[in-house]
């Protein structure tokens, strides 16, 4: 139901913003909106500022996204502001739906089979990101190797860290313990710091434009923070790497692949793997873009092979 509303709202947004001026930078150079709200690829920010605003313009974006991984479904939406092609501010709400199959298995494991059914649950998280372009012009500096570089901070806050998991009869044997807490997470919030270097090589591969991006992220997050931050045994920041390689195969089509490393703080059920995806993004004009991706997250609790489809719509205004 919630999902249908979001999709309907996004369609309204798309049609509304089609009529608005969305900035003068070249098509596709605003990237898409990642699942955490920052502009770039689907799972990693780029150094490009969201939207199509030039140094003289302020532009906004709105997005809605859907990632389906069998027993886990992530729905997310948000908006961003690109200011003078220098500063990007974004706010994103993520909702992770976890099926009763997963929660039942977790209870069964914890109680050695004494409890083997539980209700489905959801984890809501808010994300606020600020990104600042510090140097370079990733599109027009074609005579130099210097990429465009941006630095960012990303604050994430759980809304369900203390939400009791319920059994079918409405009781909660582990009061005030959400999924992240049960799996051993220490904190309900955390701030990531990242540096992204992005460069577009025009006419590079057989005349096609090649986009390369590398992001270094300093983080305490467990599974992007959806499973909390830090653990009892490991509460330190770790450096993670993220990257994108993409080809612009036509003025309106981008295909590419991405990766993102994770640290395995919680271990056990919540062991984390390197995330990869392959995507195709469609930019019919500067008003909106649509992206479809195949994502491989590796292990999620009680689901060792988590692969699925990811859809994003971003509207620019």
């Amino acid at each position: 139901m919630f999902r249908t509303q979001i999709i309907a709202a996004s369609l309204c947004l798309v049609s509304f913003f089609s009529l608005a001026n969305s900035g003068s930078r070249l098509t596709a150079t605003g990237g898409i909106t990642g699942f955490e709200g920052a502009a770039g690829g689907g799972i990693t920010p780029w150094a490009f500022i969201s939207g199509y605003g030039s140094k003289e313009e302020i532009n906004g974006t709105a997005n809605v996204q859907y990632l389906h991984l069998n027993d886990y479904t992530l729905t997310t939406f948000g908006a961003s502001l690109g200011i003078y092609d220098r500063i990007e501010l974004s706010a994103q709400r993520q909702t992770l739906d976890i099926s009763s199959g997963i929660t039942s298995s977790v209870f069964s494991l914890l109680t050695e089979g004494a409890i083997n059914t539980a209700k489905s649950t959801r984890i809501d998280m808010d994300i606020v990101t600020a990104k600042v372009k510090v140097l370079g012009d990733g599109v027009f500096d074609q005579h130099s190797w210097v990429p465009q570089v941006a630095v960012g901070a990303q604050y994430k806050k759980h809304r369900d860290f203390d939400t009791t998991l319920l059994l079918p009869d409405g009781t909660g044997p582990l009061p005030n313990q959400g999924v992240a807490r049960i799996l051993g997470a220490k904190d309900d919030s955390g701030t990531d710091f990242f540096v992204s270097a992005t460069k577009l090589y025009l006419g590079h591969i057989n005349g096609f434009n090649l986009l390369t991006n590398l992001t270094a992220r300093y983080t305490k997050a467990n599974t992007f923070g959806l499973l909390g931050f830090g653990s009892a045994s490991d509460d330190s920041y770790k450096l993670e790497w993220e990257g994108t390689l993409a080809l612009l195969t036509s003025p309106s089509t981008v295909i590419g692949v991405e990766f993102r490393t994770q640290t395995n703080r919680l271990g056990g059920l919540a062991e984390e793997d390197t995330v990869t995806d392959a995507f195709i993004a469609y930019f019919p004009n500067k008003s909106f873009s649509l992206t479809a991706a195949y994502v491989d997250l590796g292990n999620l609790p009680m689901q060792p092979s988590s692969t699925g489809f990811y859809l994003t719509a971003t509207a620019n205004f």
Partner: peptide
């Protein structure tokens, strides 16, 4: 599109 990109690459600076 490829020719366009290659020309733009030269003009970009």
């Amino acid at each position: 599109y490829q020719q366009e990109n290659q020309i733009l690459q030269k003009l970009a600076p």
